[in-house]
Design a protein around this nucleic acid. Structure first.
Lengths: 342, 342
DNA sequence: ACACAGATTGTTACCGATAACAACTCTCAC
DNA sequence: GTGAGAGTTGTTATCGGTAACAATCTGTGT
């Protein structure tokens, strides 16, 4: 008693499964795609044959024939920082839940041509949608061209005609931090900002400035860093030279760590002499000395939302771009205290 | 004068390019794959047609027909920690340099069946090779089955019949840290270890123990954490109760941050009363107060090596598994000092 | 018992590229 | 001038699925 098809030594294909289950290739395909109109009995026979042969569907063939890759692409910076790592995790979970896999293209620069390059690498892999997890201020012709063809969602970027946006309300980030420090009685708040080409950084600055102005305070000059702890340290060396500095809003926790270290070295106590607020709520924020007051951003949710939106958009490209924002929250720890009553 | 083929509204395929360039499909294929035997003239015509039509090769078709996906897969834990992020970066760069792209499958648990599941998701995507960037102690039948079919390299794992290993010399990590502390004159060295199911953690323990024994010192009981800062903090609360503790080797920087915070809170000064050595050299290590002495691991190099090995292995599966190790290095900063001359 | 709708299964053609092989062109030695 | 051989290009079959349509089966109401 022998099968018609000899499957020895060859990786089994759908035809082999069909033959073993005594049905047609197409029925196997339907059973495996959870198509509704398949009898329980048939489905069981197919599943038995599948596991007996150790069959796996060939993704390439499936993709070629259906035109659907069940893959979404992500453009991100080399994920050395907390936020992108967590965003990536949120995306992966959401994508997997929807039966999609995620392909990552890193870009080392924020230049539009570099981003466009990453996007076309993804396009070559026939991704059905793209998440731009980089701080794009302006799209270029090249990026626009691709996102017209492939549904694209931008995280924390600026809106453009063919791109949806999912973002943390960065204005709220700046507002929460600055208001917190003013409420503690500080005369004004200094700001260590992120690089000018990051949208997030710009919006936090704007909010910081707006809150100060609204409260009738003078906004001191901005000190600019590059997100690195070292740049925060340098900013700290600068600020310790000015005795009038009692409150600093730092645009990231990592810079805040550097800043606090500089303050310590120069004998300024935190929070007794200077209060510091960071942004991100990285894992170590609670274990700094003193524990860092910071503005937490729901990164994992952002990742999830970006993918959910993208999948909706893929399902119905007619959807009108509808920017979604989620709110940050202030986490008060030990690095902030009432102003020294000079 | 009109072309035979109307390409309007359809994404162009190789046939369109061929028609426009006045050559055959196959020649286009050869030109685009950098096949040697194509005239410069022909290649130029093809390239012109490609850019005129905005043609991109369909990866699915290419994969189906050639059987090669030009993709490698990575199994990793949700990349919330420094090391995996940097390893991932190193892999991506190496893969891209070789014309490969990287597909990531995260696994939330270290259970063999969970890892096997991630591996088969990758197998479904027809990856040509797999990097296991998770601390596997033992393979299961299921994982073995897959890695027999698909070339697999394990990072920092245990060797198995069908798997190559690329690893940091974790014994050296433990040795460097422990010897450094002994050389500073400490009577013995305490150890806050990582979870028992991580190979790295085990080897560091072994080395720590061996160095102490060899020096004729008594090895104090091990305190075990789970890599989180919180677990380091808890370990710190425990150790501060014992006045005889003057030197601690902590198996990760993040735990070291937690431990140092606990020491501070309890009034033990670092490094004056207690010296601390961490592992990893995360970006913030230099900005802790005091700056953290730690053992740096060349993560990016590990990622690169893993991919290089994998590609060699793919090219020639007959290669005998040949474990590669790279050396860590001690970075001395401010958290270690000579033993208090009690 | 019969017609008919809906559910289930089968048949055929095709997705877009590449491998294997066949055919052609050119150069150079004799 | 001719044949050998290398270099270049074309032809055909095929990879493993899925869409679209055709065919069959099931159960229901009259």
């Amino acid at each position: 008693m022998s099968n018609e098809r000899a499957t020895t030594g060859r990786t089994p294909d759908m035809g082999d499964v069909a033959a073993l289950a005594g049905v047609s290739k197409q029925t196997v395909s339907r059973a495996l795609s959870n198509h509704p109109n398949v009898t329980a009995r048939t489905r069981a026979k197919v599943e038995a044959a599948v596991s007996q042969l150790g069959y796996r569907r060939n993704a390439a063939a499936s993709m070629l024939s259906s035109g659907r890759s069940r893959t979404i692409g992500v453009v991100s910076m080399p994920t050395l920082n907390f936020s992108s790592a967590v965003i990536g995790y949120g995306m992966e979970r959401a994508a997997r839940a929807a039966g999609y896999s995620v392909s990552v293209a890193t870009t080392t620069s924020l230049a539009p041509e570099s981003i466009a390059d990453s996007m076309s690498r993804l396009a070559e892999q026939a991704v059905e949608g793209i998440v731009l997890a980089v701080p794009v201020i302006a799209g270029s012709a090249a990026t626009e061209e691709i996102s017209r063809r492939i549904p694209t969602v931008t995280i924390d970027g600026s809106r453009s005609a063919s791109t949806q946006v999912v973002a943390v309300d960065q204005f709220a980030v700046g507002r929460l931090a600055t208001e917190h420090l003013l409420e503690l009685g500080h005369e004004t708040v200094w700001h260590v900002a992120g690089p000018a080409e990051w949208v997030e950084a710009g919006e936090r600055e704007t909010a910081w400035h707006a809150v100060l102005t609204e409260a009738g305070r003078e906004a001191p000059p901005i000190v600019r860093g590059d997100w690195s702890p070292e740049s925060g340290y340098q900013a700290g060396l600068l600020l310790t030279r000015m005795p009038e500095v009692t409150a600093v809003f730092v645009a990231s926790d990592e810079m805040a760590f550097g800043l606090i270290r500089a303050l310590h070295e120069q004998g300024r106590r935190v929070p007794h002499d200077v209060s510091v607020v960071g942004v991100d709520d990285i894992a170590l924020a609670a274990y700094c000395s003193p524990a860092l007051t910071t503005v937490a951003q729901p990164f994992e949710e952002i990742g999830r939302l970006a993918v959910d939106h993208l999948l909706d958009y893929i399902a119905d490209p007619a959807t009108t771009p509808d920017p979604t924002t989620v709110s940050p929250s202030l986490v008060v720890r030990g690095s902030t205290a009432p102003a020294p009553s000079a």
